[in-house]
């Protein structure tokens, strides 16, 4: 079947079977490989995107379910001039990524959090990241980056 959705503001169409996952559709049909697949039990969150403004795991949703929807992926997050947006910049500034594999999902989850809760506490951030697993950072600098992106003070815990 043909599936059409607005991805990062552009209308895009492609072929999908019933079983085609949204993540597969984005990666293989639309070539948007920034969305990653890190597990098959819907837990790691590397595939996190926004569908109609809501954070979802694109590996646990069929492409057909997103037919007609507004989809936002990591590829559409930068500012119009190509520079990093506030969240992306905070991740770079605070070394909130190492291997980069979980990063697209983390950025999308962070964007969703800050939209609902513009001044989250450290605990709010950690709770919101329940479904995003990072193996590199111990989350320390991810939490710092999200605090910084929200315009709040970042706790000084390292000898820096």
């Amino acid at each position: 079947m043909k599936v059409t959705m607005t991805v990062n503001g552009k209308s895009m169409s492609g072929d999908a079977e019933g079983r085609t996952l949204l993540s597969t559709f984005l990666r293989e049909e639309l070539g948007l490989t920034g969305t990653h697949i890190g597990c098959d039990t819907s837990q790691c969150g590397a595939c996190t995107v926004h569908v109609n403004g809501k954070q979802v795991k694109s590996c646990t949703m069929f492409a057909a379910e997103a037919d007609g929807a507004e989809v936002a992926t990591i590829e559409g997050q930068a500012n119009a001039d190509g520079s990093l947006n506030v969240i992306q910049q905070a991740f770079q500034d605070h070394h909130g990524l190492q291997c980069g594999f979980c990063t697209p999902g983390m950025v999308m989850a962070a964007a969703s959090l800050l939209e609902q809760n513009p001044k989250p506490t450290e605990a709010d951030i950690r709770h919101h990241l329940e479904g995003n697993i990072c193996r590199c950072t111990g989350y320390h600098n991810i939490v710092k980056a999200i605090l910084a992106a929200s315009g709040q003070e970042v706790p000084a815990v390292a000898a820096e």
């Binding site: 790691c44 950690r126 709770h127 697993i133 989350y139 991810i142 390292a158």
Partner: peptide, 22 residues
């Protein structure tokens, strides 16, 4: 055999970490 039973550390499991390399 999956993340359903292998417990990966999540953000809520870990504290901020004080590091020093002086």
């Amino acid at each position: 055999a999956s993340y359903m039973d292998y417990a990966m550390p999540r953000a809520s499991d870990l504290p901020m970490i004080t590091v020093d390399h002086s």
